[in-house]
Design a protein around this nucleic acid. Structure first.
Lengths: 94, 94
DNA sequence: TAAAGTAGTTTATAAAATAAACCAAATTTT
DNA sequence: AAAATTTGGTTTATTTTATAAACTACTTTA
């Protein structure tokens, strides 16, 4: 029987966000938007889900006078991502 | 910018079916149901989508007196799967 | 021959993704 | 300096998708 895929990560946008965050110390909302090509609304919703799952930490600050939402991946997020990738490999590798 | 993931393949059940079909000459409905753990209804719907996309070929025959739905992956399906896997790698590999 | 099982399909419901509309503050234009 | 525009988002509504429940047609078993 096939391994099951964490539904929170098996989503193009959320997986993209996690993938980006794995490679950087932190990333802000605008950067994530650019890299993923997502609409602001969609990104906002998906970041919320990742945060509620404990996979990312979100900090609302300001850059100068403008609001700035900073995201970084958590330890739990890294573990979940690794587990997801391993499950996925059983689908895509012989 | 991240590569986009073929939404037809980025579905746990459909991806599972494709993954199974890649490894065998053909597989029947009951076998796919066992291997994926899906309900019959869900499997029926997802096979339909894969067929309509041209990713699998479905042949309705009989085994003795019982109906038997045989599935096999098409060339187009193989190409789509490979493309999907390549796009996915950009998410899960450094 | 009635009950139970097999192999599915169709339809209804729940969940998810996405987009559209909105908001508050900052910046730019006239 | 007021009005219009942009920025950085959130909230709500809509569409799409996945899933389950109900159903059909036929077969096997008791």
């Amino acid at each position: 029987m096939l391994k099951s895929l964490d539904p929170l990560l098996h989503s193009e946008l959320r997986l993209g966000v996690m993938s980006i965050l794995l490679g950087v110390e932190e990333a802000d909302f605008v950067f994530l938007r650019q890299e993923t090509g997502a609409t602001a609304g969609n990104l906002s919703v998906q970041l919320d889900k990742l945060q509620k799952a404990g996979y990312i930490a979100v900090e609302k600050t300001f850059r100068g006078k403008m609001p700035c939402t900073l995201c970084r991946i958590t330890e739990e997020g890294i573990r979940a991502f690794e587990k997801y990738v391993e499950a996925l490999r059983s689908y895509i590798e012989k």
